[in-house]
Every structure is written in structure tokens, then in C-alpha cells.
Simulated scan of single mutants.
Amino acid sequence: MSTLEAVTMANNLFTVDLARQMNGDQNVILSPLSTIIALLLICLGAEDTTEAQMKQVLHIKNCRDIHYGIQDLMFELENAKEFKLYIENTLFVEETCKIANAYINSNVWYNSKPEKVAFRNAPRDAMEHINSWLEEKSKGTFQNMPETLISNNTKIVVVNTAYLLANWTQNFPKYKTKNYEFTLSNNEKVPIQMMSAQGKFNLRTIDDEKLRILELPYGAGKDLCMYIMLPDNSNDLYKVVENMSFEKLTSWTDPKYMKKKYTTVFLPHFEIESAYSMKDIMSSMGMPDVFNDTKATFTRISKDNLFVSDLISLATVNADEDGTRDVTNTDDHFGFLALMLPEATFRVDRPFFYVIQHKPTDCYVFYGTFQKP
């Protein structure tokens, strides 16, 4: 297995772990890749039990040259021609801490340098500085973190953002967007704007899981795609995610099991923006020492007593007629297909989850659930 393949597998294993940990009744959007990069950034400075816990949770315990692997993966993603993926990670560190030069130099893999802020003497100013960084890096999507996050005892706050610009291979004509009913997990029906399109799409039905899968590619090359995982019943989503494994998700998104059919697709018009405090989630997954002021060991960052106050993970996804964001349109129709009768209908009118995958590397870039408008 190459280093790139090992990094991708670690990311995809971590994706499933995160999905199950965050399984609930709310809409979710996160970038496992962005989160794992942020954690690897601080893992560079970890030692002893802290380092061992992080490597275990990130599935990199036996992965050599992990940081070079991340560099190779990001080169593939950042140099793609048909989509733009922006991932930013920064450590905000208390200004009185003396950061080791060796650690600063090692961050070349992540194009990131720790920023010093006055957590101790001016926590409000530090908060405003971080919020300004968030507004800039997220293209104005996110602007403010919870005020309770920062105090004069804060040592390190790690922030990561993920932002995608991409267009569907086949856009959804705007004139076809209409109001339909969406059935919530409690069987309540609510109105929602539903896009629709007809074309050849890859589909799969998994009877044992009571699950249908739709592949929605981006761009002419289709190197990036969104897989919609739609349970048969409106209240089945929690169970499907709870029972999901790495092997199952890998199989569900395997193109050799898909069948291309001329299909009428109905998809909710949705936009989800989220900012998560990952401290409790990461602690529950097996790395509590990272956030413990008496147990954390980050002596490769500084000889001062450091611990991570929180990891803030931010992501946004927008499924509209064009794609994830407003960029130049790609092909809007398939010409001769207008003369064909649809072989199938895929109506996403109940809770579902999705992954956005970079197919050349098999890397899951985003994961999300849609529970309600």
C-alpha cells in the first residue's frame, strides 16, 4: 500500500467513526479530511500517551510518512481543474508560550504557522481576531464562534475550515424547482423546495439494508461525486448510520456495483453550514488527553504546559441547481435523452446521508446528513 493509499484509508475509516459518533436528529455537514489534517497538525507536536491516543483514533498507528502522504493527497485535490477545495487550518496559541523552531519548521506540510494571540491578557481581542480569520478563510460563510470558548486560561485553539466550489455534471433546471412534501423521521410532512432533473445516473439498491444509492457527479470529468444514501423509510436513517462500517460504506460507493439508468431525480434544495466544537467528540472517540490540562503532552510544540482548549471544525455544503456554489455552469441537458422515457425515479423526500468523494483517490472529502429543511 502506498503512503497516499494509507492516508486515504485512514481518512475514510475516520469518516465512518465520525459519522457514527455524530449520529442524531440534526442536519450534519463536516469535512473528515479537514478535521484529520487539523489533528495531524497538532499530532506533530505530541508525545507519549497523547501521541498514542491520537494515532489510534486517526488510524495512523502503523502508517509511516503520514505527513508526506497528506501532502500528496492535498496536491491531487488542490490541483483539480473542475472543482475548488479550500481547506485551512491554524493553531491559535497563547502569546506567552515559546514555540519550538523545530515544530514551526515541520509545519511545511500543512502550509500553516501557529498564530500567537493574547488569550491570558485580552481574551475578547483574541476572540475577535479568530472570528476575523474565520470570516476571511470561509469566504464570509462563518463569522463568530461561541463566546464561551475563549478564556484567560486558554492555551491552544485549533480551527479548520472546508469550503467547496463545484458544479453538477448535469445541472438541475431552475424552472423545475417546485414545492413538494418532505417526510421527517417522526413521519410529519413539511414543505420543501425540490429540484428535479432527468438523465443517466448511476443507481444501486441494497435490499438487505433497505437502502437506495444515487451517484451525482460533478464536472465533465466526474472526478468528484456526491453519493446520496436514501433509506426506504423516513425513520430508518439513525439505524443505517449506527450500523454502518468502513467495509459497508466502501462497498456502497463502489462504482462496479452501480447500474446506469435514465432516471428522474428529485433532490431537496438545501444549504447546511456548521461549526462544531469537537472537544467532546474527539475525547469520546479515544483522545481525551489532548484536551486535559494535566495530561496533555505537547512538548514538541513547547516546553510550556500546553493543552488544546478546543478543536473547531467548520464546513458548508450547498446543493442547488448548479452545484455547491455559484460558478460557471456545465452542460445543462443531454439532448437526445429528452426522447426517452425514464427507467427509474429517485425521489429524495425523507432523511438521508451523503458523502462527497474524490474518485481518483477514493477519498471522502465531506460527509453529511439531511434530516429536515
Rank of each mutant, 00 (worst) to 15 (best):
Q26I: 05
Q26W: 03
Q26Y: 09
Q26N: 13
Q26R: 11
N27T: 03
V28I: 15
I29W: 04
I29T: 11
I29F: 05
S31Q: 02
L33E: 02
L33Q: 03
S34M: 01
S34P: 03
T35Q: 06
I36D: 06
I37H: 04
L39P: 00
L40I: 01
I42Q: 02
C43P: 00
L44W: 05
T49G: 06
T49E: 15
E51V: 01
A52E: 15
Q53V: 06
M54N: 10
K55E: 04
K55A: 00
V57M: 08
H59N: 13
H59K: 10
I60E: 03
K61Y: 08
C63F: 13
H67C: 05
Y68A: 14
Y68I: 10
G69C: 09
L73Y: 00
M74H: 06
M74A: 02
M74Q: 10
M74V: 11
M74E: 12
F75A: 08
E78Y: 13
N79Q: 10
A80S: 07
E82W: 09
E82R: 05
K84Q: 13
L85Y: 00
Y86A: 11
Y86F: 12
E88P: 03
N89P: 02
N89H: 06
L91R: 05
F92H: 00
V93N: 00
V93W: 06
E94L: 04
E95M: 07
K98S: 14
I99N: 01
A100K: 15
Y103S: 07
Y103H: 07
N105H: 12
V108D: 01
W109K: 06
E115P: 04
K116D: 06
A118C: 10
A118W: 05
R120M: 15
P123R: 09
D125R: 15
D125F: 15
E128W: 08
E128Y: 13
I130R: 00
S132E: 15
S132V: 07
W133C: 04
L134V: 02
L134S: 00
L134N: 10
E135H: 11
E136S: 06
K139Y: 13
K139H: 13
T141G: 03
F142W: 11
Q143W: 08
N144M: 12
N144W: 12
P146V: 07
P146M: 08
P146F: 10
T148A: 14
L149H: 02
N152S: 15
K155E: 14
I156P: 02
I156C: 01
V158G: 08
V158K: 05
